[in-house]
Simulated assay, not measured.
Amino acid sequence: MQIYRIDHVGQVTPDLASQVALLEGLFGFRPVRSWDDPGEGCRGVRLAVPGSWGQAWEVLEPSGDASPLREYLDDHGGRPGLHHIGAEVTDVDAVRADLETRGLKPTAGARGRWLEASLSPPEYGTGVLFRMRGPGTLGMCGDAGATARDATAGSGDRGPSLGIVALDHVCQAFPDREELARWYADLAGFVPVWRTPMDEHPDMADLVMNIPGSAICWEIIMPRGEDSFIERFWDRNGPAAHHVTFEVADWDRALEACRAHDTPTFGENEGSTDGAAWRDAFIHPKHTGGVLVQLFWEERPGVWVRSDKVPAPWT
Rank of each mutant, 00 (worst) to 15 (best):
M222P: 06
G159S: 09
P80I: 10
A94D: 01
V244Q: 08
R253K: 13
A56R: 10
E100Q: 09
A66N: 11
I283H: 00
R133L: 14
A205M: 13
V191C: 10
R43N: 04
Q2I: 11
A148H: 14
A312G: 03
P311L: 04
L16K: 00
V305W: 12
R300H: 13
Q294R: 14
V12H: 01
A173D: 09
H8F: 09
Q294A: 05
A56N: 10
L23V: 11
G134E: 01
H169T: 01
D93A: 14
V128K: 04
D37Q: 08
D74T: 08
E270K: 11
R253D: 09
E24F: 12
L82K: 03
W35G: 05
D186T: 11
V193S: 06
E179G: 06
D98W: 09
W53D: 15
R43P: 01
A108P: 07
V244M: 04
A110T: 10
V20T: 04
E88D: 08
P197D: 15
G271H: 02
Q2N: 12
Q294F: 07
D93N: 10
Y184L: 14
G213I: 12
V95N: 00
T265D: 04
P197Q: 12
E61N: 03
D227C: 12
R46Q: 15
P160L: 07
P135K: 02
R102E: 03
W234G: 13
R70Y: 06
Q55H: 09
Y184K: 13
Q11K: 11
E219Y: 03
R5D: 06
D143M: 06
L47H: 02
T265H: 02
G25P: 03
